[in-house]
Design a protein around this nucleic acid. Structure first.
Lengths: 212, 212
DNA sequence: GTCTATATGCAGATAGAC
DNA sequence: GTCTATCTGCATATAGAC
């Protein structure tokens, strides 16, 4: 059983522990849990392996602290949106915006989550429940909107998959997309990412709009 | 420099080599390139490590054969669609259908590709070019359709990201989605996957439709 | 807290008999 | 082609001095 530690936001930014967290993020993103090497993390943090193990007994513990540390920063915002009482389409907009601002700060998170989804889905699922993430409210809301005829018929899982897919794909696929669609120009790609929020929002709204 | 081998479709299905390929697919999906163990692949194939190395000199070679073997089955279909002369919306429908049938046969491919996108984007990008995959035709087609006023304005990268995101997300996120949205019922989830094709197609068509 | 040096285990790969 | 046994290297983790 794993304890989910608090994230490390309120930490002295140049403390050794914080340097390790930062370094571990970078390396885990590039290499994943299995591909990452403690040596590489130590190098990136400017310390040695022994000190790394002084702060984090095992690689598993370090990974969990880093992973659930960043993830726990996203969830509260989503919970608030899910539980709120705004009109449905505003909710959609808020979800896109929440992910968008979060992703621009943590562009590596999607790859992170994808890997973890397959590596240890039970732990991840448990974590989300522990954090209080629950879809039942928004799920019910969609049904109501559909029944009232305010939006075109769609189930929550389908809408959710569509939304999350559109949001995260440019981050997950960046190395390939940037090469194939933007001649490997990172500036152009960042601009593309900035346009996503508006594009996705209008894309979804259009597709849910009922015929006049 | 890596040679891209032909896939193993025309192989005796219960030959040792084919058993290895099958086993390797399963293990690589679950664990990724780095997390996978040759021992585990050998076990899954019902042989031992030495024999594994007899057929595939290195783990790297085995991975590449498996990965590019499956991937190369998807690309020709896409190329044909991209280059064809059907009306634009039919093309969209064909792409969704192509992915859909392919994914239902290879539900693991998305995770595979995602991992590889980050592990070795150059090789993957080169492979796609070598196979003749090229977006310029469909990219131009979208511009024309937009200029003619047949569809709402959208750039190819945005539409592509939306489309691919919606298509692959349920496969990438399955372990989590199935737990969170379908009470971990695999039958329900397979049914959900089968509905995706129709849902995505109509979702995209609606969002591209111009105001009357 | 931070280091050097070392222990331990395991995974990829090979040798060689059959 | 298939096996058993073994080598080699490397990654995690610890011991112990400062």
């Amino acid at each position: 059983m794993v304890k989910f530690v608090k994230n490390s936001l309120n930490m002295c930014p140049d403390s050794t522990k914080e340097k390790i967290i930062q370094a571990a993020q970078q390396v885990f993103i590039r290499k994943g849990m299995d591909g990452a090497r403690m040596q590489e993390i130590a190098d990136e943090a400017g310390i040695n392996k022994a000190l790394l193990h002084y702060y984090f007994h095992s690689k598993e513990q370090l990974f969990n602290d880093v992973f659930y540390g960043v993830l726990s920063q996203l969830i509260p915002g989503l919970i608030e949106i899910f539980k709120g009482n705004e009109p449905f389409l505003e909710k959609i907009e808020a979800i896109v915006a929440e992910y968008d601002t979060y992703m621009s700060k943590n562009p590596f998170l999607p790859q992170f989550v994808i890997r973890e989804i397959n590596r240890d889905p039970d732990q991840l699922s448990r974590f989300m429940s522990d954090q209080g993430l629950d879809f039942s409210h928004i799920e019910a809301m969609i049904e109501i909107e559909v029944n009232k005829g305010n939006i075109r018929p769609i189930s929550f899982p389908h809408l959710f998959a569509n939304l999350i897919g559109m949001i995260v794909m440019p981050y997950i696929g960046r190395p390939l997309f940037q090469r194939k669609l933007f001649r490997n120009d990172p500036v152009k790609y960042d601009q593309f990412l900035q346009e996503r929020k508006a594009v996705i929002t209008s894309f979804v709204k259009q597709s849910l709009k009922v015929e006049r």
